[in-house]
Design a protein around this nucleic acid. Sequence first.
DNA 1: GTACATCCTCTAGCAGCTAGAGGTTCAAGT
DNA 2: ACTTGAACCTCTAGCTGCTAGAGGATGTAC
Lengths: 142, 142
Amino acid sequence: MLTIGGLGKKTGTKVQTIRYYEQIGLMPEPDRTEGGQRRYSLAALDRLSFIRHARQLGFSLDAIRELLDLGDHPDRPCEEADQIARRQLKQVEQRLQRLEALRQELKRMVHECSGGRTADCRVLEVLRDHSECLTDHNEIGA
Amino acid sequence: MLTIGGLGKKTGTKVQTIRYYEQIGLMPEPDRTEGGQRRYSLAALDRLSFIRHARQLGFSLDAIRELLDLGDHPDRPCEEADQIARRQLKQVEQRLQRLEALRQELKRMVHECSGGRTADCRVLEVLRDHSECLTDHNEIGA
DNA sequence: GTACATCCTCTAGCAGCTAGAGGTTCAAGT
DNA sequence: ACTTGAACCTCTAGCTGCTAGAGGATGTAC
């Protein structure tokens, strides 16, 4: 039986975050000691590891919820899980494209700055005038 | 003199967002009609364009605030602006690296899924067991 | 028996918006 | 001059995914 702190250490999760996952129903309510402290089973450790790993791969908490549900029904076809992953992959690829365009733009900005007065700063100039951009970067590249 | 809606259209910004920028002091308080509606000058249009463009390039509102300050002092050296841009470039490059690693992992996951039952789903399996990963993806790739 | 690390709940905050309620103003058409 | 209706106003609350802090209780080791 793990304390919440122990579980946090094993999974690289802050204590508050674990409680937050419980609050939003992503982690089940664990057993408690007589004094009211949480004690976690190995199943909880597995589940949290899954969640954290999926987070690291950029899945949203909603997507993770779906994936966890699917994992609980081993006999259902796995198409859904596959689709969620494909969707995620697509998103990642789109973000990559946008970020790459941003990188180009920023690089150009920085390289053209020769270090004079701000009045002549290419960085500020480019920001002032979108038409100088080589790429369309219409969405935030985050 | 532009209405807030007109300004929004010209810059691709939602009306609420413009008011939000005003609230946090990124946009100055504009003139008002007798009835209390906002009316914007061309200077305001320039400023908002600058802000939106910088946002598209991924700068934080704080960074933008700094950049705007620098733009208001044309005689100061532009090193600072350059540094802000370099910092941003670095961040973008780091994100690109992480996202690329995630893409690999997701691609592998998806390709290995042969479409059976969830019990045998590679997607779920990989998520369950981090040790199957080829890459370290310790931070969220967002 | 006492120290003190860890736990508890609760509330509020972060970025950067976005949406809605409930009401007012402006400009165009008649 | 009057009416319509789109666009404006303020205010509050919500989104994601946590994170931090207050103020107090518990558990464990010595």
